[in-house]
C-alpha cells in the first residue's frame, strides 16, 4: 500500500499529469504549425474554422465518452449523424413540416436508434460492437431511403415549396450567428454541451454509476445498480448528441447530405481515446475528450494548411492516435509504480 497520506493529492497529480501531457502536445503542434505555415495557421479566420470543426467533433465525442465509460461501444453514431441531418431536412424542406417539428423528429429518430442499440446490447445481450455495427448499416440504409440519396438545401427547396424567411434565418443562425466579440455560435453550443456532460458525468449520481458499471458490471448488478437502465440512457445520449451535432453542422453549411457522417467515426474515436477514455470502460472525462478533439482538429487543420493532401493527413492522424494511447499506457504504468 502506498504510504502516501495525501492520496487525493496523488490522484489529482495523476490526472493533472495526463492533462499537462495533452496540453503540451497541443502547444507543440500549435507552435509547429505556426512556424511551418508561416503564420497562416494563427490567422483568426483559420483558428475559428478549426474551433468550429472541433465543436461538432466534441459534441459527438461527449456522447461517445458516456457510452465508453459504461464499458460498451457505439459504432452507429456516424450513421445516426447522417440520418438525423436528412430526417430534419426531408421533413422540413420536402414534407413541409415546421422547422421545430423537423428538428424534434431528427432527435427522436436518434433516440430510437439509441434504444435499439440498448435493447440488443442489454436485453438480447449481444456484444454492443455487433449491435451498433449492425445498427449503423441499418440506419444508413434508412438514411438513403428517406433522402433518396439526394443532397438537400433549404436555400433551394423543391418546386412549389416556399420556406418561410423567418425559419430560414433561424436555421442559419443556429450555427452561423456571431456573438459579440466575433465568438461563433457553434462554439457556444459546444461549451454548453461540455457543461451539460461535465455535470452529468462528474457531478451527477448518474455519472458515478456509469463509471461503476464500466469498472465492474457484475459487481454493479450484485449491488443492484440498474445496469440496463443506465446503459440505455448512455446509448440514447450518444445518439442524441450525434443528432445535435448533425443539425448544427447542417445549419452551418446550409445543406443536408446523406453520407455526411461517414467520416466521423474515426476522428471521434481517436479524440475520445486520446482524451483518456478506456475502451474497457470505467474511465473517461469531458475535459479529456475536449482536449482530444482540439488536438485532432489542430492536426487536421494544420496538415490541410500545409497542403499535405488527404492521404498524408489520414496516415498522420492514425499514427498520432496510436502514439497517444501508447504514451499514455506507458506513463500510466510508470505512475502506478
Amino acid at each position: 500500500m502506498s504510504s502516501n497520506t495525501n492520496q487525493r493529492g496523488q490522484n489529482f497529480k495523476q490526472s493533472f499529469g495526463r492533462t499537462a501531457g495533452l496540453l503540451g502536445a497541443i502547444l507543440l503542434v500549435v507552435v509547429l504549425f505556426a512556424i511551418t505555415s508561416h503564420g497562416l495557421f494563427l490567422k483568426p479566420a483559420n483558428l475559428l474554422g478549426l474551433l468550429r470543426y472541433m465543436s461538432s467533433l466534441a459534441i459527438v465525442g461527449f456522447g461517445l465518452t458516456a457510452v465508453l465509460i459504461t464499458g460498451e461501444i457505439d459504432l452507429s453514431f456516424g450513421a445516426v449523424y447522417g440520418l438525423s441531418s436528412m430526417l430534419s431536412g426531408v421533413a422540413w424542406i420536402v414534407w413541409g413540416w415546421d422547422l421545430w417539428q423537423s428538428i424534434l423528429l431528427a432527435l427522436c429518430g436518434a433516440a430510437i436508434v439509441g434504444l435499439f442499440n440498448a435493447f440488443f446490447t442489454t436485453i438480447v445481450k449481444i456484444p454492443s460492437f455487433i449491435a451498433t455495427l449492425g445498427a449503423s448499416t441499418i440506419v444508413f440504409g434508412v438514411d438513403l431511403l428517406v433522402s433518396k440519396s439526394n443532397t438537400l438545401s433549404p436555400l433551394s427547396p423543391p418546386n412549389g415549396r416556399v420556406i418561410p424567411k423567418s425559419e430560414l434565418k433561424f436555421f442559419s443562425e443556429l450555427s452561423n450567428h456571431v456573438l459579440p466579440g466575433g465568438f461563433p455560435m457553434q462554439l457556444l453550443w459546444m461549451l454548453l454541451a461540455a457543461f451539460v456532460f461535465w455535470y452529468l458525468l462528474t457531478k451527477s449520481l448518474f455519472g458515478f454509476h456509469l463509471k461503476a458499471i464500466g469498472g465492474n458490471q457484475v459487481a454493479a448488478e450484485f449491488a443492484k445498480i440498474k445496469v440496463r437502465k443506465y446503459k440505455m440512457w448512455a446509448f440514447i445520449i450518444c445518439s442524441v448528441a450525434a443528432a445535435s451535432a448533425a443539425i448544427l453542422d447542417s445549419s452551418y453549411i446550409s445543406s443536408m447530405q446523406p453520407d455526411s457522417g461517414a467520416g466521423l467515426l474515426f476522428p471521434t474515436f481517436a479524440a475520445v481515446v486520446i482524451g483518456g477514455a478506456s475502451l474497457i470502460g470505467g474511465r473517461g472525462t469531458v475535459s479529456g475528450t475536449l482536449m482530444g478533439c482540439l488536438l485532432l482538429a489542430i492536426l487536421a487543420n494544420g496538415l490541410a494548411l500545409l497542403g499535405s493532401g488527404a492521404f498524408l493527413q489520414q496516415m498522420f492522424v492514425g499514427a498520432v492516435t496510436i502514439g497517444a494511447v501508447v504514451l499514455d499506457q506507458t506513463t500510466r504504468a510508470r505512475r502506478k509504480e
Partner: peptide, 9 residues
C-alpha cells in the same frame, strides 16, 4: 472480483 469496483477509490 465481483463485489468491488477496481476503478473506484
Amino acid at each position: 472480483s465481483s463485489s468491488l469496483f477496481s476503478n473506484l477509490s
